[in-house]
Structures are given as C-alpha cells and as structure tokens.
Lab assay of single mutants.
Amino acid sequence: QWIQSKREDIVNQMTEACLNQSLDALLSRDLIMKEDYELVSTKPTRTSKVRQLLDTTDIQGEEFAKVIVQKLKDNKQMGLQ
C-alpha cells in the first residue's frame, strides 16, 4: 500500500491543516469512528497525530486510505515520491 511505503515522508510532511481536512472528510463519510477521531485529535503533537491516523488506516482499509491520499493531493503534498 502506497501510504505504508511513504509513511515516514507523510509523518514528516503532512500539515496540521491537511490532517484536519482528512479527519473531517473521514468523519463526514462515516469512515472513522468517533473514538478513533478522538484518539488522533487528542495526541499532543502533529507527528503523533499523523502516526495515529496512519495506524488507523492500516485497520480501516482502502476507502479510508483513498480519502487521505486525496487530501494530500488537494494540499499539494504529493511530493512524497
């Protein structure tokens, strides 16, 4: 999976804004449970939030991952090649 192969780059480069947009999009599509949303959003640092989101992606699967990839594209953060 692309996200896993780029995990380190995503953790380093995903902005707080992109992270929040991803969470909002996942929530609005019922792809993330409120508990998982809280787990991510209550982490103390941006990098720990991104790591938690990516860990959740492993469990949730492809549809979940597609939303995150789309948000990275929207925010022009796909220089993660």
Rank of each mutant, 00 (worst) to 15 (best):
M33A: 15
D74A: 13
M33L: 14
S28Y: 10
N75F: 07
Q52W: 13
V67A: 03
K43W: 00
Q60Y: 14
L31C: 03
D30H: 14
K49F: 01
E63T: 08
T57M: 15
S28W: 05
L23S: 03
K43L: 14
R51T: 10
K49P: 03
I32S: 04
K71C: 13
I68G: 06
D58Q: 14
L39C: 07
V67T: 09
V11W: 00
K34M: 09
G61F: 04
E63M: 03
Y37V: 07
D74V: 11
K73A: 12
L23M: 09
K66H: 06
I10Y: 01
S41L: 14
D24E: 14
K73W: 10
I68V: 12
K66P: 06
V11E: 07
K71A: 14
I3P: 11
M33Q: 15
L39W: 01
Q13R: 05
K49Q: 01
Q70G: 12
L26C: 03
E62C: 03
T15D: 11
N20V: 09
Q21L: 08
C18N: 09
M33R: 15
L72Y: 02
I3G: 01
K71R: 04
A17C: 12
K76H: 13
T15L: 02
R46W: 01
D36H: 11
N12P: 00
T15K: 02
Q21Y: 08
G61Y: 09
M33H: 15
D36T: 10
V50E: 05
G61Q: 10
F64A: 15
E62T: 03
E8P: 05
Q70L: 02
L54W: 00
K43I: 05
S41Y: 12
L19N: 06
K71T: 15
D55T: 08
A65P: 05
R29M: 13
E62K: 01
A65K: 02
K6A: 08
S22R: 00
K43T: 01
D9R: 05
E35S: 13
Q70C: 03
S28T: 11
N75M: 11
E38Q: 11
Q4S: 15
C18G: 07
D55V: 09
Q13C: 03
N12K: 13
A65C: 03
M33C: 15
A25P: 02
S28G: 08
G61C: 12
L53K: 08
R7C: 00
D55E: 13
I10W: 00
M33W: 03
T56G: 06
L39G: 08
S28H: 10
I10S: 03
I68E: 11
D55L: 12
G61R: 11
L31T: 02
E35K: 14
Q60D: 02
L23F: 02
Q52V: 04
I10R: 06
N12W: 01
R7S: 07
P44D: 07
T15Y: 00
G61E: 12
S28M: 10
E38F: 10
T45N: 13
R46V: 13
K66D: 07
L26V: 03
I68S: 06
V50L: 01
L72G: 05
R29E: 12
V50Q: 04
I68M: 11
D24W: 01
D24Y: 10
S41C: 13
T45Q: 03
D74E: 12
S5E: 15
Q21I: 01
K66A: 11
E62P: 06
E16I: 08
L54M: 03
K76W: 08
C18T: 15
L31P: 04
K43S: 06
T45A: 06
A17H: 13
I68H: 05
K71D: 07
T47M: 07
V11R: 05
I68C: 01
D36Q: 15
I3V: 06
D58C: 14
K43E: 08
A65Q: 02
K34D: 06
Q60P: 09
V69Y: 10
L19P: 09
I10K: 03
N12L: 13
S48V: 05
I10V: 03
E63W: 00
L54S: 03
S5F: 03
V69L: 09
E8L: 05
T45V: 04
T15A: 03
Q70T: 07
L27H: 09
A65I: 00
E8A: 08
Q13V: 11
V11F: 02
S22E: 03
L27R: 11
E8W: 00
Y37L: 11
G61L: 05
V11D: 00
C18E: 14
M33G: 15
R51D: 05
L26S: 07
W2R: 07
N20W: 15
R51V: 09
K34R: 12
Q60N: 08
T42W: 01
D9T: 08
L80S: 11
I32P: 06
L53N: 01
S48N: 01
V11A: 06
L53F: 01
A25Q: 07
W2Q: 07
Q70R: 06
S48L: 13
L26H: 09
K71N: 11
D9W: 12
K71G: 09
K76R: 11
L27E: 14
L31H: 06
T42H: 11
V40K: 06
E16Q: 05
